[in-house]
């Protein structure tokens, strides 16, 4: 294709995006659009799968049968999200094996929040309330993103996430209204998860390298700082309602801006965790790599069996 032809296609493409038309897998798209989407969707899929681990850590120890079943179902939902997102990503011409390879070798990233440990039962509440809460704020705008398969996957994901968030908040509420031990457990979890949850919404706008292009493609509709402010404004009253204290002495309502002002985020910590030095980076990745390696003989058997069945069918047909 000549340069002129490509330029022409790019123009048509940009116009489609501007008209809010969905881009579908078979449509022409610029190589950069394809690559950016593979990066973001796969990062999202990996986050779902790695995100199963910190919560999975408490399934066998959940404090009641009701909570055990709810947590198990929740972690299963994350697996389901991973599945649709990998499928959406595969429509861009990359295989599941390649995507796993990128995760296992550390080439692809996943949300850094999952490199923090779940130390008490209250962490399960805090993850649902804060981490899923922040995820929803990040993800709701994606339901109307330009790439069709991603937008459709996100509609389903968001519905389930908002259920998870309510469930997490309900765990925190039960603890906060419980015995002094339970309340202390809830406060401790909030103390540990609050700042990492704020970091989850991404680096500040000044530091964010992908924001401009992503806004143009409607892969992002608000900046990281706007989303973070929205999360804080939404979450502070929820903490107040159940009598828990946000661990930020600078936090206060600003009558002029109609938003909460908040303290400084420790971005050094954020970058350390992103670079692999968080409390559980190594454990999370090894757990994924081990599951994949240990499952190899099972996947091989399933393939071999399917091939044999196919051969038998052909033989019978002949």
């Amino acid at each position: 294709m000549s340069e002129k032809e490509i330029k022409n296609l790019e123009e048509i493409f940009e116009q489609r995006i501007a008209r809010d038309e969905k881009i579908e897998p078979k449509d022409w798209m610029p190589e950069k659009y394809r690559k950016t989407h593979i990066r973001q969707i796969s990062q999202h899929a990996h986050s779902e799968i790695v995100g199963m681990l910190p919560e999975g850590n408490w399934i066998s120890r959940a404090p009641s049968l009701r909570r055990k079943v709810a947590l198990l179902a929740k972690v299963q939902d994350e697996a389901g999200h991973g599945l649709y997102l990998y499928s959406a990503c595969e429509t861009l011409g990359i295989s599941r094996e390649e995507l796993y390879e990128q995760l296992h070798t550390g080439k692809a990233k996943y949300s850094s929040i999952f490199n923090y440990p779940t130390l008490t039962w209250a962490d399960i509440g805090a993850i649902g309330w804060l981490v899923d809460g922040a995820a929803i704020i990040n993800q709701v705008p994606l339901c109307s993103t330009s790439y069709g398969p991603y937008a459709r996957a996100m509609i389903r994901v968001c519905k389930e996430e908002s259920f998870h968030q309510r469930q997490g908040y309900e765990i925190m509420m039960t603890l906060a209204n419980g015995t002094p031990d339970q309340k202390e457990m809830a406060q401790d979890a909030l103390n540990r998860w609050w700042w990492p949850s704020l970091m989850m919404l991404g680096p500040t706008d000044a530091e964010s390298v992908h924001t401009e292009q992503s806004m143009k493609w409607k892969l992002k509709r608000k900046t990281n700082d706007e989303l973070r402010q929205q999360f804080i404004d939404q979450t502070v009253p929820q903490a107040d309602l159940i009598g828990l204290t946000i661990p930020d002495s600078d936090l206060k309502w600003n009558e002029e801006t109609k938003h909460y002002d908040f303290g400084e985020i420790d971005w050094d910590e954020f970058w350390q965790v992103v670079k692999g030095h968080g409390p559980c980076n190594k454990e999370r990745l090894s757990a994924r790599v081990n599951a994949w390696k240990e499952g190899e003989w099972v996947r091989d058997a399933a393939m071999a069996y399917a091939d044999k069945q196919q051969e038998n069918k052909i033989k019978k047909a002949i």
Binding site: G56, I59, S60, Q76, Y86, A287, A291, V298
Partner: peptide, 19 residues
Amino acid sequence: LSELCGHGPNLETDIACTN
């Protein structure tokens, strides 16, 4: 079975065992 959740040989099997 729930001890396996998140550690299955692939996502589909993981989901089925959790079911």
